[in-house]
Design a protein around this nucleic acid. Sequence first.
DNA 1: GTAGGATTCAAACGGTTGTTTGACACCCGC
DNA 2: GCGGGTGTCAAACAACCGTTTGAATCCTAC
Lengths: 206, 206
Amino acid sequence: MNTQHFSTKERILGAAEQLFARHGFAGASLRQVTAAANVNLAAVNYHFGSKENLINEVFRRRLDDLNAQRLAALDAALERPGSSLESLLDAFIRPALELSLDRSGGGAFVRVLARAYAEHNDALRKFLSDNYGHVLKRFHAAFAQLLPDLDKEELYWRLDIVAGALTYAMADFGVIKRKSGVNEQTHRERYAEHLVRFAAAGLRAP
Amino acid sequence: MNTQHFSTKERILGAAEQLFARHGFAGASLRQVTAAANVNLAAVNYHFGSKENLINEVFRRRLDDLNAQRLAALDAALERPGSSLESLLDAFIRPALELSLDRSGGGAFVRVLARAYAEHNDALRKFLSDNYGHVLKRFHAAFAQLLPDLDKEELYWRLDIVAGALTYAMADFGVIKRKSGVNEQTHRERYAEHLVRFAAAGLRAP
DNA sequence: GTAGGATTCAAACGGTTGTTTGACACCCGC
DNA sequence: GCGGGTGTCAAACAACCGTTTGAATCCTAC
């Protein structure tokens, strides 16, 4: 991996993603990153200006896509007649699961994303809210239409729990290891189905 | 806080907990910790041997208690006739919520715990599994009796999601801020009720 | 082919990291 | 009261951190 035909910037972003996932933002040094990317140490500051900006670019590269896919899936679900709770949840969850399955680094990125949630770092939270907040709002509006009897604030509570459980699931936080013999893709897809059913039941709870 | 009548070891543990929660394990330096604890820099290596061992002790101080309380609550719930899914979930969730509400650092610790989940650090995962795994096993057995039609592996999936959502909730990951005017205790207790109902519905899903 | 901007490189910058040292103060049992 | 373990302290250690520098190299446009 990180073969030579990728540009220096791309190799740095890929290596940074891997190492931030494994050791955290403070724990991964630029020397580790540049060594893994097979790139000179000074290249990071030349191409990205600073370590902090490199972190932001690692997020931007994936989040723009993820948000767009989620909104597209939501629109598609809303256009289909008779959209159910399950179809909306699937629109939210599936793009994230697919990202986590994507070859060349998507799996590492979701762990980076989970780290970002764990960080209390205000700048990072603001960055994520700017790129993420309006997506959650659109989903909230769609769910509200399907659950007219549910208090709006209560719905926020429950969507928050769903988003939390999803973050947890995507990052493979679970201590329970997958059955040997079942490959990663099947493992994640079954997890997605379970999560959708679980979340739908939770949202429907009286 | 960190008044003088606490021992040096206790002051270090308290300060480390706060700073690990705020900046992570790599992000918080021993100089920050010892300064916050009003203690000499060398005291950490004198009392704990190394930074890594200090991290372990920060966990041990709280986890022993949390595990004991959860198991006690589980036993109490099982002795009462007609135990429900909700009462078992409450036994799992309430001690953690109470810890997160505890004065003098418990709230910081749950954020440290969430960080530990986000870390891929194998040594830390093993440490947590050693202190945490048997509790999850006992809860799994109790839930299995109440849900005889649910496949054992499926139950593991769902409990994993519950544990993930709980970790998320405890660490106050949510982007949704609590309504102003509602104090922290009420906020958390309502979150616990929502989580119990949500989780029970999810576990009962066909 | 050669000028000139873009990129890479080794080296060094000042500052911070975890850890160690040895001298110094404390305090309790004899 | 005094010796000896226990704890504290300022200082220094080597290693590592993010960043900067200026020369060397590459690549493209003319």
